[in-house]
Amino acid sequence: MLIPCPYCGARDAEEFSYRGDATPVRPDAAAPDAAEQFHDYVYLRDNPAGAFRELWYHSAGCRRWVEVERDTLTHAITATRFAAEGRRA
């Protein structure tokens, strides 16, 4: 599987470390329901069969976190961007 790293170009997935779902956002620890929110953030996942936004770390390359849009049924990658950009978007 080749992942088009926005910095390095297409590289084999072997060069990357995987984290998983890119969508959960770290909650505010000061929120009154922080415990519940963190539970959801750390543990609960949509785990979709199909389009998925996920985080890969180019550990054997540029060490950038890359957000990848990939279909979990076909492994087809449709877009990649630096994770930080996805976060700001």
């Binding site: 998983g20 779902d21 959801d40 543990y43 609960l44 996942r45 949509d46 785990n47 979709p48 069969a49 979990t72």
Partner: peptide, 18 residues
């Protein structure tokens, strides 16, 4: 293997990834 897929039909999210 498919727990999340079925659970989503019930509006549930599980601590599971496939």
């Amino acid at each position: 293997g498919s727990s999340s897929r079925l659970a989503s039909k019930l509006g549930l999210r599980l601590p599971i990834e496939s």
